[in-house]
């Protein structure tokens, strides 16, 4: 059975912790190990931070709609904003060889998640869908 939790936060960085807390609670009740939980939280947090910075240009009172779904071993998160759209083909992580501040958020998302899809085929905003197969993590957690 798919369990879905939805929340909407304002595009103010002070509310990012709410998304982290809700996701932590959801994953901890499904025996997802803490290290993977923290990685998934990081991805959601980075995606929301990017929305605040780029889609909403730091305007603090616009909605970020988040939907977490967990279906046995498949974790899916959808994050919807109504801000400025960009060409998803241009969203690429920077190479890590050069040590410099910034530009790591997209790298974290692509490194951790199995599937990342940006949909801008809509009147306003972007729908980001990220998925992760947690079978190995959850089954090993249950056998330990």
């Amino acid at each position: 059975m798919t369990e879905t939790v939805k929340l909407t936060i304002p595009s103010d960085p002070k509310y990012l912790c709410l998304g982290r807390k809700v996701l932590h609670h959801l994953l901890s009740t499904h025996d997802v190990p803490e290290d993977m939980t923290q990685r998934l939280i990081l991805c959601v947090d980075e995606a929301c931070s990017n929305i605040i910075k780029y889609s909403y240009a730091n305007c603090p009172d616009l909605p970020i709609e988040i939907s977490f779904s967990l279906d046995e071993y498949r974790f899916e998160v959808k994050i919807l904003d109504y801000g400025k759209q960009c060409d998803s083909r241009t969203i690429k992580p920077r190479p890590l060889k050069k040590i410099e501040p910034g530009g790591l958020g997209t790298y974290f998302i692509n490194e951790i998640m199995d599937e990342v899809h940006y949909c801008t085929q809509r009147e306003k905003g972007t729908l980001l869908t990220m998925c992760k197969n947690l079978k190995n993590e959850v089954t090993s957690s249950k056998t330990n």
């Binding site: 982290r20 923290q38 939280i41 990081l42 947090d45 980075e46 931070s49 501040p101 910034g102 530009g103 790591l104 958020g105 790298y107 974290f108």
Partner: peptide
């Protein structure tokens, strides 16, 4: 907890 902005700092 630390995110990319913390790492960048």
């Amino acid at each position: 907890y630390i995110d990319s902005s913390g790492i960048a700092t």
